[in-house]
Design a protein around this nucleic acid. Sequence first.
RNA 1: GCCUGGGUGGCGAAAUUGGUAUACGCACUAGACUCAAAAUCUAGCGGGCUUAACGCCCAUGUCGGUUCGACUCCGACCCUAGGCACCA
Length: 848
Amino acid sequence: MALDFGLNFMDEKYFAKKIEDKWQTRWRETGAFEVERDDAKPKFYQLEMLPYPSGNLHMGHVRNYSVGDALAWYKRLKGFNVLHPIGWDSFGQPAEDAAIKRGVNPRDWTEQNINHMRKQLQNLGLSYDWRREMAAHRPDYYKFDQWFFLKMYEMGLAYKKKTQVNWCDNDKAVLSNEQASGGLCWRCGHPVTKKDLEQWFLKTTAYADQLLDDMAEIEAGWAEKVLKRQRDWIGRSEGAFVEFGIRNSDLGLKDKTNPQSQIANPKSVRVFTTRIDTIYGANAIVVAAEHPIVEANFAHFSDETRIVIEKIKADKLKVTDHEAEVEKEGVDTGLKAINPFSGEELPVWVGNYVMIEYGTGAVMSVPAHDERDFEFAKKYGLPIRQVISEPHLVHEHSTMQALALEQAFSDYGVLVHSDYWNGKTSENAKKEMTEYAVKHGFGEAATTYRLRDWGISRQRFWGAPIPIVYCEKCGVVPEKFENLPIELPAQMVLNDEIEGTSPLAKDEDFVNTVCPDCGEPATRETDTMDTFVDSCWYYFRYTDPKNPEMPFSPEIAAYWTPVDQYIGGDDHAVMHLIYTRFWTKVMRDIGLVKFDEPVKRLLTQGMVVGETFFDEIPNPDEPEGKGKRIYFPPSSVTVERDAKGKIIAAKSADGKMLKSAIERMSKSKGNGVDPDEMVEIYGADAARIFVLFAAPVENELVWNEAGIEGATRFLQRVWRFVYKWQSAVSRQPSPISNEEFSADARKLRQKTHQTIKRIGENFESLQFNTPVAALMELSNAIYDFKVEPESASDADIFAIREAAEALILMLAPFAPHTAEELYAQIAGNDRGILANGARFPEYREELA
RNA sequence: GCCUGGGUGGCGAAAUUGGUAUACGCACUAGACUCAAAAUCUAGCGGGCUUAACGCCCAUGUCGGUUCGACUCCGACCCUAGGCACCA
């Protein structure tokens, strides 16, 4: 049903505020962007990463959402049923910090921020279906975080295990790696120890292969750099386990439940290697200080050996700068291992460069063909024996005994000094030697991953409670589905008295409960879930936001999902985007969805950055590290620049020389730009055009407001010519044969159709700066068409109308308010593009 | 150290994928309108020669190669931004 609002007279001047208010109100009143499932129409799911409700929108948001909105509009004009929702990632640290610092309720703080930011989004005129808004901190949402947790518990994908955390015994606090820097507590200076804490994990490793292999399904739509980072993060490597017998160890493993229990034979050490072909070059076995073989034999080691091992363990607790290279350190334990291929006896060393968390916590050291082993062997004078040769040097290398290698040769080659295997290529030797090891029972092919299971326990208040109950009688008991949600207490006094234990532990009403199984008194788990859980599935909730029984209806979600286009910052390339892919595979296995991958196309936008000015106060504890920075807002700084605009000198108001840098915009650095202010001065449409036009989306955008006037000028130019031609053009022109057009009119029509083609292609390839340029060109072409309304022929008017209509329709994704208003004017009724059901202009090749 | 992007005017950037390099915008210069200013409009705007006019030469980080033709493809190097970092 079409709504008719009657025709307004057009202002001669472009008043952004007036138009924006008018259309925002109308969109709201008519539910212009509200959509329902419609099997007769093709769907398009346009999604942008949901914001954390910090209190204010920043320019990064404006950029992200302007891009998403442009695409949503484009797809609407192309006839798609477009789902374009937004919500809030509203659990997390800042709300809790605010609560501690200012004594506010985190819920109130969060809701207030959401209300303010929602208004800011609406002022930008973003085309969301607001009925579908979700917020992670509301019980009707996190109920299903808990639901999923219980499902995963049932499936064996959620489990609890002891893990080491940094612990300050003086403060009784868990410390993050950053807070345990230097091995000392950041607050009291007490030495940091490791403490075993029970934490909940989700078994992401169970999906490691799928996470890697299913990348083939999304390769076309995801940036290669994102996929690569995920590949690195998962870090699959193919190789082999090999058992080295231990000659003088008569002690077995004491702890069979230890995760390293794969080292089943107490008389051997199992190593992981990707280069079994180099095994004849092994000069030692090097194990991590925490390795069971070390613990089992510790009492038998010499004092010096034990001191070194203790030191290595202690050093690992220190959090070192990633830039600083750690010197290799180790000690010979006196244990002897037997190389199962050669029968050679090798010393067993403890080395600080071997990680207990990866592989088996033990490696065979082959210095000739591994850089790290080379460095280690050099330092301790261990023999270095070359067993892989470059093909053209084989003869030379096989006749010589030892070679003075300058550095490790880690490429593939041909085997030498390897008995039976001499002359084989690395590739063949790897395969055959693994088979040989399997046949003789001392090895097997193996695949290892860097990916760890996802620890989701947080000793925090502001998150979804983990729905687990501890009962004296029944042990660990999952909550019943019908008891969900397990709600956070409405009132909670938060302070930082005992940081490191969950604040919920202090609330007896929360903690004390009854066992879901036996009904006896029991206690609740007081840890909450990592906030990354919330963002794993929020965009499925949008499809069915009010469902009280299920996270979403599989049937409704089957229409809308997977997401056709996702847009966000590439800082989430690994964490969020791996977790949500994992979650989707779990949902598939539960039967909620029927696909492997949730996002078909991913666009990662560049950051919005700005100049910052600061005074750096050196930190005496870390002479080489970065000092503390005190930021000065740019408006308070006097800046001297060279001809190219580079900063020569910057001075604060009181004359202090300041350093400067280009950094991510933020309030604390004083270089943020308030979107409200921009909208107030220039209007939402101009702000949106500018932010898209300023640079390609994937580039970093160095904020500089100088160009925004250009966006305003462009909109004004468009406005002025529509005003001039409005009455001439608003009567529907009749079709005209091609010969009646003047040469200039034909030129204009050509430009119009070339532009239609170009902009369509730009949208399909996710370019947003070039279509704005194309619109400007078309607008310039209309100005170059020197005809006045009074003297224009029908053909001229037809050409003008065609160009104007195309321009206005293609402007809508960038400047929707202005486009709606201008379309209403030329359509001759006061309905805009949407209400008139207008479509993206049709490209006619014969005219272009 | 390894991996991945990127180097084009004063600035942000284009270039139909090997075919007129610098579109579009910002900044700047001159002119028109104005008592004046703003706004708007017109013209100019990579560098160097040159003409009355036409024009010519050099320029896409550097050096080389392929091609009738290279910002685009190939090789080496330089610079820069980001990611990873003892993963055996």
